[in-house]
Design a protein around this nucleic acid. Sequence first.
DNA 1: TCACTTCGTCCACGAATGCA
DNA 2: TGCATTCGTGGACGAAGTGA
Length: 292
Amino acid sequence: MPASAEGALRRSLRVTRIVNSYYSGLDNRTNPFNYRLLRAGWIMAGADYRIERASVPGHEFIFCLEGAGYVRIAATLARVEAGQLVWLPVERPHAHYPDPANPWDILWLRIESPNLGRLATVLSVDSDPVFRFATPDDVRRLFEEALGQIQQHSLVAAAATERTAAGLMERLIDSRSTRALEPAVAGHRGLAGLMQEMHLHYNDVWTTERFAETCRVSKSHLFRLFKLAFGQTPNAWLRGYRIAQAKRLLVETDESIGVIARRVGYEDPLYFSRDFKRVVGLPPSRFRDLER
DNA sequence: TCACTTCGTCCACGAATGCA
DNA sequence: TGCATTCGTGGACGAAGTGA
C-alpha cells in the first residue's frame, strides 16, 4: 500500500484529538490594533468530527496540514486539501468537516477586523473560499506564529499578531493577484484595473464597451485577454460573481427576489430568476427555503 | 473584420399566495 | 371571492461573443 494511502487509512480510524485550543486574553478595549486574534487551535480530526454553527463573531481561517475536508458557507460547498487554506466568514451559517476517507489535520485562527468583510468581497471569498499557494509552508509558519502569540496575553504579542495577520492577508491577496495568471497577461495593468472595477461595481450596468474602455484595450483583444486569464468571458465572470452575491443576500436578508435581483445588477428580476435557476439548479425562492 | 451563434432584455401570460 | 403582488415560463429581437 502506498504511504499516502496508508496515512489516510490510519487517519480515518482515529478519534478526534484537539491538540491546542486557545482564547485571546485581550478584548476590544485592551487591544488597540486593527486585527484581533480571537481564537486559535490545532485539530487532528477523526472521521466523524463536524462543526456546524449559525453565527460566531469574526472570520475563520483554516489551514489544512494533511488529509482533506469540506467547508460550507451559505450555498458554497468546497473541498480543501493539504497545503490549502479556506476563509470562512463565520458570522453567517457555516459548517466544516473532514473527508471521512482521509480526515484532515488543521491549524485554525479566528480573527476580527473591521476591514475583513470588504477584503473578503474583493477576493471573491463567497464564490471561491479556498486559497492555493506556491509555497504553503510560508502560510503554515504564519499560523504557528499566531498560535504562539495568542498564548501570551500581552500588548507586545498583540502587536506581533498585527504583523502576522497582515502577512496572512498579503499572501491571500498575492495568491489571487495577476502574478498568478498566464505569462501573457501577468502584470497587465488594464486587466488588473478591470478586475478591481468589476469587484467594486459588479451591480452597475456593464457593456462590452465599458469592459474594453476600463481595460484600455479593443473589444476583440479584451475577449482574448480575459479568456486567457480566466477561461471565460467578462460577462460570464460577472454573472458568476453576481449569482454568488445573490445567494448570500437570499440567505442573509428577507428582501424580495426582485429587490435582490436589482441589488446584484440584474435590471430584469424575471431574467435573474431564469439565470439563477440555470446556474444553481433551483429557483431563488426554493433556494432560500432550503438554505434556511 | 465580419458572418454566424449565443446571450440578455423585454413583453405577455399564467400560477401561487396573501389580504380585505 | 376578487384584487394585488410575486414569481416562473416562453417567444421575439437586438446586443454580445466567437471563430475564421
